[in-house]
Amino acid sequence: MSVIDPPLPRTSAVPMSRRTRRMMWRGFLFAAPAMGLLLAIYIIPVLVLAGFSVTDYQLGALSWGFTGFDNFARAFSDPVFLRALGNTALYAALVIPLGVGLALGVALLVHGRKRSRALWEVAYFLPVTSTLVAMATVWQFLLHPSLGPVNAAFRALGLDPVAFLADPHLLIPTMALMGIWQVLGFNMVLFLAGLTAIPKDLLEAARLDGAKSPLDRFLTVTWPMLGPTTMFVLVTTSISAFKVFEQVAVLTKGRQGSETLLYAIYLEGFEYAETGYASALTLIFLALVLIVSIGQTFKLDRKVHY
């Protein structure tokens, strides 16, 4: 066919026929409710949030002024916020490696089981579906210094009881313990899906190629093939770690220097009505989440296509 086609004769001056326009309207109408909600729930709030963050607005206040980047400057000299940031980082540093590593280990063990697989899935997945508020209350009881069975077991073994919920240094690790407990089953199921997707041929080929021990096979085939899954698991675990909230709300309410990022935002924004300042904190939180999830989008694009 020639590169340049002769211009088409047009029977009408209107560029779009009525039917084409009708079809476009139809598509538009189908998308319209969701578009409206997207505007109301995501787009406008994000803009408003950005607007708040450069003001000293307080909910209910009659006057407010533009303060530029003062809120952000204040955040990075606010000991409470810095502590919350540090606590969240510590929490994430515990939950991410353990929540992902243990889940991978359990998934590898469960993957080999044929008959008992359903049983293990139930046992490890049950915490994912449970209400964390209620389960945090249960954990509080389990870890109780005198009434809880955990410390009772320590005593029976001749160890000193551990003040999980009294020692300020142990508060965040204790919350991380609950976080790991809840996220483990979720990650395990994702890893199981990843493991199932690895073609059996590949493992057999590795065996023929001389990968004798299971560890060799894991390192030459399983681990590289799980790359995309691991990436995804790492990102979702990180984001859920940044959002840690329930444990603080149930166990300490932020006392003893145990605020986390989201709890600090909650206090500033909703308890103290410091809307402007809390908006700035929220933007910092959002930036953290976006850095991780955008990184994942790019990484996945490159890695997922083996």
Binding site: T11, S12, R19
Partner: peptide, 17 residues
């Protein structure tokens, strides 16, 4: 939908139907 031209079925113009 055609960009141009018309179509009729049994004598009825159906381009926009």
């Amino acid at each position: 939908t055609p960009d141009c031209g018309s179509l009729s079925i049994e004598g009825r113009d159906v381009t926009d139907v």
